[in-house]
Amino acid sequence: MIIAEMLSYPFLARAMLVGLLVSLCAALLGTSLVLKRFSMIGDGLSHVGFGSLAIATALGYAPLAVTIPVVVLAAVLLLRISQSSRIRGDAAIALISSGALAIGVLVVSLTSGMNMNVSNYMFGSILTVSRADAALSVALCAAVLALFTLFYPRIFAVTFDEDFARATGTRAQLYNTLLAVLTAVTVVLGMRMMGALLISSLLIFPPLSAMRVFRSFRSVTLCSAALSVGCFILGMVCSYAFETPSGASVVAANIAAFGVFALLGKLLGR
């Protein structure tokens, strides 16, 4: 009934919808990212998102229209960098993410001053979820679900062994780019609600927890998706009941789930 009560507020119902869909997408995409050792990309993207969001707001543009293209571009760039052997991928991601964060903070402080806005960007606020966000999340979720069901064998092959997949004629780069682009959109959509500093945990926690217990790609993917949705609902309910920040509450629920799964994994001898 507490959930029914929450859903009676239109803004909260919208936030729940967007959050659920984003959590589901993040968990699915995150499974592949974590296994490919691209976990840091999510973190880098959220900081780039923060920077471009700050600039968009300062210039008075619609936030999504500016942020999504910028972050998608950054995703493709980060993917290229982390695959090239010339530049150290992890260092490049750290540079880009802290650089974007710094620019974002500068822009915000020059325009509106360091106020509530910055805190909202960093740690999220459910009040910022708009109708456009809701529509876009439905579209994103449909795209991610379609990708994972229709191309499941190819996603597995590209995640497990890219060289083998390429040698047998799979366009691995296409799937990598698709993953990066969808991750970028997920990050932007989830960012304002979860916060720029917290959104990457949605990508990383559920798959890592699932991997403590499950041992096949299919079960890890399914468990990670279910876990992410469950943790989101739990986090939101706690946030509503105890008046805690929503983003942090969801992350806390994920931490708890990780603990439970790690313990379960130990007990099962894994």
């Binding site: 790609f217 299919r218 890890v220």
Partner: peptide, 12 residues
């Protein structure tokens, strides 16, 4: 990598 033997072989 969490994958079952069958999943790996099937990807061939």
């Amino acid at each position: 990598f969490p994958a079952s033997v069958f999943e790996v072989v099937l990807s061939g």
